[in-house]
Simulated assay, not measured.
Amino acid sequence: MKKKVEDYIYELEQLIELADQEKDKYLFQDPAYEIMDEIEELGNAFDFVEPIFLLVERSPDIDFGGPGPFGSFLEKFYRNGYEDILVKSLQRKPKKYTIFLLERLCNDESNPKREEYCTLLDSLKK
């Protein structure tokens, strides 16, 4: 039986819960890289971008990595829709991790929306 988006998100959610309970980020990060690699091989990898942000929004503030398995995956869609979904996530429920991802957008001096991202970042830091 083929796994669905929800199945992968559930697996990741379980890893996040375990890492939070045990206070060990590697209980999430190490296996999550394998899951993200599996997702990348699917033909619909972009379909996972928003569900991953929703997962981060409802998760405790664990160390997701810098950029970690999520960031490495999400940033593959940079300039292909990832930024808009990140901004929507930040508008709904900013988290340490999504603010970190926004900071990375602000570091790209060639990004035409850099000023907009930096303004949003400044407002979130207040």
Rank of each mutant, 00 (worst) to 15 (best):
K3T: 05
K3P: 00
K3L: 14
K3Q: 10
K4Q: 13
E6A: 11
D7M: 04
Y8H: 08
Y8W: 04
I9C: 08
I9T: 04
I9A: 09
I9R: 05
L12I: 06
E13N: 13
L15G: 05
I16V: 13
I16H: 01
A19C: 06
D20A: 13
E22N: 06
D24V: 06
D24H: 12
Y26L: 07
Y26W: 13
Y26C: 02
Y26N: 12
L27Q: 11
Q29C: 07
Q29L: 12
Q29E: 11
D30T: 12
A32W: 01
Y33G: 00
E34H: 08
I35F: 03
D37G: 07
E38Q: 11
I39C: 04
I39A: 02
I39Y: 01
E40L: 06
E40F: 01
E40P: 00
E40K: 07
E41F: 03
E41R: 12
E41Q: 14
G43L: 04
N44D: 13
N44H: 06
A45S: 12
F46C: 00
F46R: 01
F46G: 00
D47C: 00
D47A: 05
D47R: 01
F53N: 01
V56W: 03
V56I: 15
R58M: 09
S59I: 01
I62T: 04
D63Q: 05
G65N: 02
G65Q: 02
G66W: 00
G66D: 09
G66P: 00
P67F: 00
P67W: 00
P67K: 01
G68N: 04
F70S: 02
F70N: 02
S72Q: 10
F73H: 04
F73Q: 04
F73A: 06
F73G: 05
L74Y: 05
E75Y: 08
E75Q: 13
K76R: 15
K76W: 04
K76Q: 14
R79N: 10
N80K: 15
G81Y: 06
Y82E: 10
E83G: 07
D84S: 14
D84V: 09
D84A: 15
I85G: 03
I85M: 08
K88R: 15
K88H: 10
S89C: 13
S89H: 08
L90K: 11
R92W: 05
P94T: 11
K95F: 11
K96I: 09
K96M: 14
K96D: 15
Y97R: 03
I99S: 10
I99D: 10
L101D: 08
L101C: 09
E103G: 15
R104Q: 13
R104N: 11
R104C: 05
L105K: 07
C106D: 10
D108F: 13
P112N: 12
K113N: 15
R114K: 15
E115Y: 09
E115R: 14
Y117H: 12
Y117R: 07
C118S: 11
T119G: 08
T119S: 14
T119N: 14
T119K: 15
L120F: 06
L121A: 12
D122C: 12
D122P: 05
D122K: 15
S123C: 07
L124Q: 09
L124Y: 12
K125Y: 14
K125D: 09
K125N: 14
K125P: 09
